[in-house]
């Protein structure tokens, strides 16, 4: 399946609803009337874009259509979304650092562990020696879950007993990576609600431990967001950003039902790029993010 097809199938429902709500209006050119604007707003809100980003995208589409009379609403929207999502870009790809250290962070249940397993499998397949670090010592059996993923991906895993200090596990993991010469270290952290001050402080500590063992690390902090998430995503991104500088976002469970529009709000307000999308539960079900393909997936 091509990249575009994957986005198209991931965003299928959202697109269908968009078409249902807007119908022929998507082919319209020139000025947008009140009724079309209302329908458009409803469609964007239904995609979880949120009131503010919806307004921004509508204004942007109107501006483009005024400037170019040949442009129809569908393409005006598509370009607006592509521009918004492409304003900043990021790839989740190891750099030249040895080891290259990445943290996966996010609230509970967004799919961090599953994504960590998939990303590790991808790197291992590219011939990079990869180490998984199970820093979720809180959730019962989280380590066992990652263990299964590590063996599926054929990579090594550093773990500790439940309830251990996550920073200590990270310390062990990075020491092991340095000693054994791993190229890539992926740290799976425990899910934490962004409103929990002590857990966010714990995350800061994990970051400090990384920097102490491998100067300049973590090289990438990936905030994992669930695509069925609503407007709270913005709040999550903002609070995580405070604890540890977020490099990019991953959207998980973008698999046909999710709306995925919450990332529009986040891109609009916080200018954070998306780097990875998770499309299902299989080992290979993830993709690098592509703003243009995402925009076309929404509207074409």
């Amino acid at each position: 399946m091509s990249l575009l097809d994957r986005f198209r199938s991931g965003l299928q429902r959202t697109r269908e609803r968009m078409e249902q709500t807007l119908g022929a209006a998507l082919g319209r050119r020139g000025a947008i009337d009140e009724a079309t604007r209302a329908a458009l707003e409803e469609a964007l809100l239904a995609a979880d874009a949120g009131p503010a980003a919806a307004e921004r995208l509508m204004d942007e589409a109107e501006r483009r259509m005024r400037a170019d009379p040949a442009l129809d609403l569908r393409h005006a929207l598509e370009r607006g979304v592509a521009q918004l999502m492409g304003a900043t870009r990021a790839r989740f790809t190891p750099g030249a650092e040895r080891p290259w250290v990445a943290l996966l962070v996010g609230v509970n249940g967004v799919g961090k562990t599953t994504l960590a397993g998939k990303l590790a499998a991808g790197f291992a397949r590219d011939g990079r020696s990869t180490l998984l670090v199970a820093a979720d010592t809180f959730r019962a059996a989280a380590t066992e879950q990652l263990e299964v993923w590590a063996s599926r991906a054929g990579v090594e895993l550093v773990r500790a007993r439940d309830g251990a200090d996550p920073a200590a596990v990270v310390h062990d993991g990075l020491s092991a990576a340095l000693a054994r010469g791993h190229e890539v270290v992926l740290v799976d952290t425990a899910g934490r609600l962004h409103t929990k001050r002590n857990l966010m402080a714990e995350l800061e500590k994990v970051g400090r431990v990384c920097a102490r063992l491998v100067p300049g690390s973590p090289h990438h902090v990936l905030l994992v967001l669930d695509a069925t998430l609503g407007q709270n995503g913005l709040q999550q991104a903002r609070e995580f950003q405070r604890a540890t500088p977020i490099t990019s976002l991953a959207i998980t469970k973008l698999d046909g039902t999710a709306r995925g529009g919450a990332v529009l709000a986040i891109a609009d307000q916080l200018k954070l790029p998306v780097s990875v999308v998770g499309l299902g539960e299989g080992l290979d079900d993830w993709q690098p993010f592509d703003p243009e393909a995402f925009a076309r997936g929404l509207f074409e």
Binding site: L45, D226, T228, L229, G230, N232, G233, R259, G261
Partner: peptide, 12 residues
């Protein structure tokens, strides 16, 4: 259901 779920909650 996750209390942070967005618009999809109705369909689910």
């Amino acid at each position: 259901m996750d209390g942070m779920t967005g618009q999809e909650a109705v369909r689910v």
